[in-house]
Simulated scan of single mutants.
Amino acid sequence: MAWFKREKKGIITTTEEKLEAPDGLWNKCPNCKKAVHISDLTENKYVCHYCNYHLRVGSKEYFEVLFDLNNFTELFENLTSGDPLNFSDSKSYKDRIKETTEKTGLKDAIRSATGTINGEKIVIACMDFNFIGGSMGSVVGEKIARSIDYALENKIPFLMISKSGGARMMEAAFSLMQMAKTSAKLALLSQAKIPYISLLTDPTTGGVTASYAMLGDINIAEPGALIGFAGPRVIKETIKKDLPKGFQTSEFVLEHGFLDFIVDRRDMKNKISNFLKMVYPAKG
């Protein structure tokens, strides 16, 4: 049965010497399932070349997309969550925080930084879904509040990038208090006539939607983002009815008047800087 074996090496290597592609070079689009080289994906702002699906990304990627030359100064980076309620389930809250920090390299579900977008000064607070579902706890609320204070003190516009499953159940009432706290801070920003831009990404739900995510001077979203309070599955099970097609997508929310614009991530930087030049001239 010698004809099953390749005695001489040709253009194609033998099975034993065949090399596997290194991990991390390709990414499969969750929507169309096609493979995209990671370098092409990065160059395209993490948007699928084939179907324009906006992949979920975190603060690292959004800072790369928005800040000029990816230059920024991170703010309040050492804030970490405590365990005010001594919450305990199958795994203690402290252990989960430690484990998630080690896994993601993040201190909590949000990062804040200041820099420029096309030369316009700005403060950006961006949520990270990989940290316990982007849940809103005390640190998230405190970082947003301090970021707004920094924007007020320096008279710099504020951009909030939301990506969250809602309140963090392990902090209970402490988590829910962040809704009022951040909303009150945003009222001060409004009184000072400093622009606040809210960017809703996939997903933006729960107490985040019910507070700071919907309070922008302009509310914008990425295409196809899930935006709502309770998720569509929960609503469907509650009302026992089928939901409209596209329910709770950013397109559906725009159609019903809760958004001002839907902006492609590849155009986001220019859209935001143009808005700031119009409403905050000679200040940024």
Rank of each mutant, 00 (worst) to 15 (best):
Y93C: 03
G115E: 13
T104C: 04
K91I: 02
S90E: 01
F129I: 05
I124H: 14
F131G: 02
C126D: 08
V140L: 09
S90Q: 03
S90P: 00
T104M: 07
D89P: 00
S88R: 12
S135D: 01
G119I: 03
N78K: 15
G105W: 05
D95Y: 04
L75Y: 09
A109H: 01
E120N: 14
K107A: 13
F129D: 12
T104P: 05
I122T: 11
E74M: 12
D89Q: 05
E77N: 08
D89S: 10
K121A: 13
S112G: 11
D108N: 08
T101I: 00
T101A: 07
G134I: 12
D108C: 02
T100N: 06
S88V: 00
I132W: 02
I97F: 07
T104S: 10
I122Y: 01
F76K: 02
V123G: 04
K103V: 01
K107L: 06
D128K: 05
T73V: 11
N86A: 09
G141P: 12
D108M: 01
T80G: 00
E77V: 08
D108I: 00
E74S: 13
F76W: 06
E99W: 04
P84R: 04
G134H: 04
S81C: 09
D95L: 14
E120L: 05
T100H: 08
E74L: 04
S81I: 13
P84C: 11
T104F: 01
E99M: 12
M136C: 14
T80V: 15
A125F: 02
K98E: 10
P84N: 10
S81D: 01
D128I: 10
K91C: 07
T104W: 01
E99Q: 05
M136W: 09
G134D: 05
I110G: 03
N118M: 02
G137P: 00
E99N: 12
I110M: 07
E102R: 09
D108E: 15
D83E: 10
L75V: 10
A125T: 14
V139M: 12
I122R: 15
V123M: 03
D89T: 03
V139Q: 06
L85M: 11
K98N: 08
F129M: 14
E99F: 10
E120C: 14
N86V: 05
E102F: 08
I122V: 14
P84L: 14
K121P: 13
M136Y: 03
N78W: 06
L106V: 00
E77L: 14
N118F: 04
D83P: 15
T104Q: 12
E142Y: 02
S112I: 15
A125Y: 03
L106M: 01
R111I: 05
E99Y: 08
L75G: 04
G134S: 09
G115I: 00
I132L: 15
E102P: 00
D128T: 07
A113I: 12
M136A: 09
F87P: 08
M136I: 13
G115P: 11
Y93F: 09
D89R: 10
F129G: 04
G105K: 14
K98Y: 15
N86C: 06
R96C: 12
V139C: 08
M136P: 07
K94I: 14
L106A: 08
E77W: 12
G82N: 11
L85H: 14
